[in-house]
């Protein structure tokens, strides 16, 4: 942490996070920060607890202990945070954003209110719905409001039609960015694997997140797809102002695009620094030695426990 020099408060702070499953301590007193407008990578051998961290951040697991703070308001001070924590409330919004205590919030509010969205290690698209529908469902809350909680929509209100038109435009814009406009009306389950990965990212982006959490987005991609993905992620950071937290095994991806790397092993943080320092960190090298490829593959499909 000493290496990180933040200009403002961090966007996300994970503080003393512990997650136990019965006797198994999957995450042990883990603390790290995610910088604003940056790409942070979370790496570590299989079973280190990376997906579990994601599940805690996005509310799919209630952490055993610890605090997870999202500050979309960059000016929120530690005093504000302390007061919010004492009140027992879940979040406090201001004109510049808000402060959210994610460990207290249910999963869907973390996406709809705190604006933290994720993708899954095993892709979770709505396979029986079209590509476009996938992107429109992601704008559910906006559209729900526009449809007057269904009442105005049933009556065919103009304001709703316009809102839906905007939603389709936004979806189309994303389809152009991931180069899938031609397949907009095909079932998502028909897409090749690499396209499904990108569609899942576009779908998450349709919720207008401030923080996008990607669980192994490059897994199973070929080198070309992988470099396309890098470009997409950098573009998201640059143009959409969305910060990214990603889990990745592919060191080349990590080294190329991330600004900051956190390394986990057995649920503990063993390093937290810039990519080039991580590369030469003896603890990291030791952790990665002896991790065979087959081990990766064998466990990969099992690890998405949500």
């Amino acid at each position: 942490m000493a290496d990180a020099s933040y200009s403002t408060t961090p966007l996300l702070s994970v503080e003393h996070l512990t997650m136990r499953f019965g006797g198994l301590v999957a995450i042990d007193n883990l603390s790290f920060d995610v910088e604003r407008s940056a790409i942070t990578a979370l790496i570590g051998p299989n079973g280190a607890g990376k997906t579990t961290v994601f599940n805690c951040i996005t509310g799919f697991y209630k952490p055993t202990s610890g605090r997870i703070v999202l500050r979309s308001d960059a000016n929120a001070t530690d005093q504000d945070l302390g007061r919010l924590t004492e009140t027992g409330r879940r979040y406090k919004t201001s004109t510049q954003g808000g402060v959210y205590l994610l460990e207290r919030m249910p999963d869907f509010e973390i996406s709809s209110k705190a604006k933290v969205t994720r993708t899954f290690q095993n892709i979770r698209l709505f396979t029986g719905m079209t590509v476009l529908e996938n992107l429109v469902v992601a704008q559910h809350n906006t559209l729900m409001k526009a449809s007057g909680w269904t009442v105005l929509g049933l009556l065919g209100a103009k304001s709703f039609v316009a809102a839906e038109q905007r939603a389709v435009e936004k979806a189309k814009n994303w389809l152009e960015r991931i180069d899938l406009v031609d397949r907009a009306d095909d079932p998502a389950g028909d897409l090749p694997y690499g396209d499904q990965r990108r569609l899942e990212i576009a779908r998450a982006m349709c919720t207008d997140p401030v923080l996008l959490c990607l669980d192994e987005p490059a897994a199973g991609l070929n080198p070309k797809e992988s470099s396309d993905l890098n470009a997409l992620l950098q573009q998201i950071r640059r143009e959409d102002g969305t910060s990214i937290l990603l889990i990745e095994h592919d060191m080349s991806v990590v080294m190329e695009i991330s600004d900051h790397v956190v390394v986990l092993e057995y649920g503990r943080k063993i390093a937290d620094s810039t990519p080039d320092r991580i590369q030469s960190d003896p603890a990291v090298i030791a952790a990665y030695l002896g991790v065979e490829d087959e081990e990766f593959e064998a466990t990969e499909s099992e690890l998405d426990h949500s």
Partner: peptide
């Protein structure tokens, strides 16, 4: 689960 992750 995907629904919940999208704020539904």
């Amino acid at each position: 689960i995907a629904c919940r992750s999208l704020g539904v």
